[in-house]
């Protein structure tokens, strides 16, 4: 019975944490899928999102206004427009120089320049964060981060604790992914993003403003990951270097789900959360992240295009 309880507890923790990972991965995947940019600064944009949520929460007094239950979620959502603008501007003035229609003249289709640019952005965000926010870890106060719903089974012999902060965070994450999928598949803006992703030249001939599509994409990708960071910020103290702890997980999730597949990235992140938590049932806890990469390598070996990726390259 104890083993079953341990398994259910691990599965529950993995799913809840995985939903947060999934949302982070969706932001990264959107940028890669549409712009073909590997954004090494993505974890650091998430860090800025966490600080944005923290300062929105404290400056607007959301704790007093909405309580420490709902306040952190509203702060996380309000961080999205802030980071959207930051991402939009970063694409407009920096990333656009090495992407889109300009990459024809650049070596390696601009990928080398993109690599250096996003790594540079990452360093600037980290150092800027250190100067602006200092090195003392902070987190968004939440009364739910140590509260749980106790689910009893077998007459109380088996109890599963569902963390309330993580559970509500997972609900918000699923809602955002659903909205994003609807935006991409149903709206005119979404169609322009997909067109820009599939074939830049054809999209241009069809009158689509590809540069605008890229700006929207980068802003959206960064904003979505910022919300994921904001959701985590109530249960996870962070410093300006917190992005480094998540960026590898984001990449693993995106590749697992299938490069360029937005929904696949969410499932990839969710799977990573489950593997990370459930592996502790069989392996020493120190090997939690090793288990993630073992599965990652297995998927790359058996299904290189990822779980929901397409086999053929886009034209």
């Amino acid at each position: 019975m104890l083993q079953l309880e341990g398994f259910l507890q691990a599965l529950n923790a993995g799913l809840l944490l995985g939903a947060h990972y999934g949302l982070m991965c969706v932001g990264l995947s959107l940028i890669f899928g549409v712009m073909r940019v590997i954004n090494f600064a993505h974890g650091d944009f998430m860090m800025v999102g966490m600080y944005a949520a923290f300062h929105i929460f404290t400056l607007l007094g959301l704790g007093a206004l909405l309580g420490e239950g709902a306040g952190p979620y509203v702060a996380a959502l309000l961080a999205a427009p802030v980071l959207f603008v930051l991402g939009y501007l970063a694409q407009r003035f920096l990333v656009s120089r090495v992407t889109g229609t300009r990459v024809g003249n650049l070596e390696g289709e601009g990928h080398y320049a993109q690599l250096i640019l996003t790594l540079g952005l990452s360093l600037i965000l980290q150092s800027g964060g250190q100067i602006l926010f200092g090195s003392v870890p902070v987190s968004v106060p939440s009364e739910l981060s140590s509260e749980a719903w106790e689910l009893e089974f077998a007459g109380g012999a088996l109890v599963v604790f569902v963390n309330q902060a993580r559970a509500w965070g997972a609900v918000v994450a699923v809602a955002i992914v659903t909205l994003l999928v609807l935006l991409i598949t149903r709206s005119r803006t979404g169609k322009s993003l997909r067109a820009a992703a599939d074939n830049v030249q054809a999209a241009l001939y069809m009158g689509i403003d590809v540069d605008r599509a890229h700006r929207l994409t980068f802003g959206l990708g960064v904003a979505i990951t910022a919300v994921a960071g904001g959701l985590l910020a109530s249960s996870y103290p962070f410093t300006p270097y917190v992005g480094l702890e998540f960026v590898i997980i984001m990449y693993a999730g995106v590749v697992l789900g299938g490069l360029g597949s937005t929904v696949g990235a969410f499932w990839g992140g969710l799977l990573i959360g489950v593997i990370q938590q459930c592996s502790a049932l069989l392996l020493p806890t120190q090997l939690q992240n090793t288990a993630i990469f073992a599965v990652f390598l297995l998927v790359v070996f058996l299904r290189p295009q990822g779980l929901l990726g397409r086999v053929s390259e886009r034209t």
Binding site: E5, A10, Q276, T285, Q288
Partner: peptide, 20 residues
């Protein structure tokens, strides 16, 4: 007797083991 690599992303499994 459990050893983990910091930083943790979630403490559920470890505290579940303490509880058990």
């Amino acid at each position: 007797d459990e050893t983990f690599t910091p930083p943790l992303s979630d403490a559920t499994q470890l505290i579940q083991k303490v509880r058990s």
